[in-house]
């Protein structure tokens, strides 16, 4: 039941995109998200599309994987599109359905918002598809480090993410073991309606939680005896280094951003 759960959606590979410094990738993703919101006409999306197409081609990630990222947000996507379609005033009325009217302005705006969302999601999932959770954690820690002076717990956040990544498979294994043990004693996890099934999970979750707390306790002692005393005075084995390809990636992103901003003043 739990076997097919993977952490994140990382697709291992050794393309130029995979090898980019995680910090650079995170920053580029942010720049891209902001740039998307600058687009004010359809032609602007051509540049964004071109950019995404280029990234997907270089990263050698199958297109179907990229689209899979859209699946969990499909409801939100449909809701946004239809709300905008029906409730944007102005323009000529194209179609009437009872009290609902579809106007030309509404249709345009709805498609616009839909595209914006799709590009946003594809852009961010390209980050998680090409970056392992571990280097993502490293990247986040390094980016947040300058902010630790104003109280952002950069090291603590990264440490929590690392431990979570480390223990997810262990806890999944444990959940399976508990489930088998409870099933051997007649527990039923698979039949009945939703309420019954949810109730059936209690004998799984209670022991799992207790064991997780016990593990946390032991881990804390083990960390202390390995001289852990928070982020202060701590060094890292892996140093992040910015290479030529990182500058190249930043440059290409910059070009696209300039084009998108310039596009705002175009006539079409």
């Amino acid at each position: 039941m739990f076997r097919n759960i993977t952490i994140g959606q990382y697709v291992p590979g050794d393309s130029a995109i995979h090898k980019l410094d995680p910090r650079v990738k995170i920053i580029i993703t942010f720049i891209f998200i902001i740039a998307i919101f600058f687009i004010n006409k359809f032609s602007g999306y051509i540049f964004a599309m071109l950019y995404l197409w280029l990234v997907i081609r270089i990263s050698k990630i199958p297109f179907s994987y990229v689209l899979k990222g859209l699946r969990p947000v499909i409801v939100i996507l449909l809701l946004t599109v239809s709300l905008n379609m029906f409730f944007t005033p102005g323009g000529t009325v194209l179609y009437t359905l009872g009290p609902l009217k579809i106007t030309s302005a509404g249709l345009k705006f709805a498609v616009f918002m839909g595209l914006r969302l799709i590009f946003l999601i594809i852009g961010t999932s390209l980050l998680t598809l090409t970056t392992s959770p571990i280097s993502l954690t490293d990247g986040i820690e390094h980016i947040l480090k300058p902010f630790s002076k104003i109280g952002v717990p950069a090291h603590e956040l990264a440490m929590m993410m690392t431990i979570a990544l480390r223990f997810i498979p262990t806890l999944i294994e444990e959940a399976e073991k508990i489930m088998k043990a409870q099933m051997a004693r007649g527990a039923d996890f698979e039949s009945g309606n939703i309420v019954n099934r949810a109730r059936g999970l209690v004998p799984l979750l209670v022991p799992l939680f207790i064991s997780a707390f016990r593990r946390a306790d032991e881990l804390a002692i083990a960390m202390e005896s390995r001289c852990y005393r928070g982020g202060h005075n701590r060094t890292r084995m892996k140093k992040l280094e910015v290479h030529t390809r990182d500058y190249a990636a930043l440059f290409i992103t910059g070009v696209i951003v300039v084009l998108i901003v310039w596009n705002r003043s175009w006539a079409w």
């Binding site: 571990i134 480390r166 593990r215 881990l219 083990a222």
Partner: peptide, 8 residues
């Protein structure tokens, strides 16, 4: 299991 901290 309870003394290994990192995921690698």
């Amino acid at each position: 299991d309870n003394q290994i901290v990192a995921a690698i």
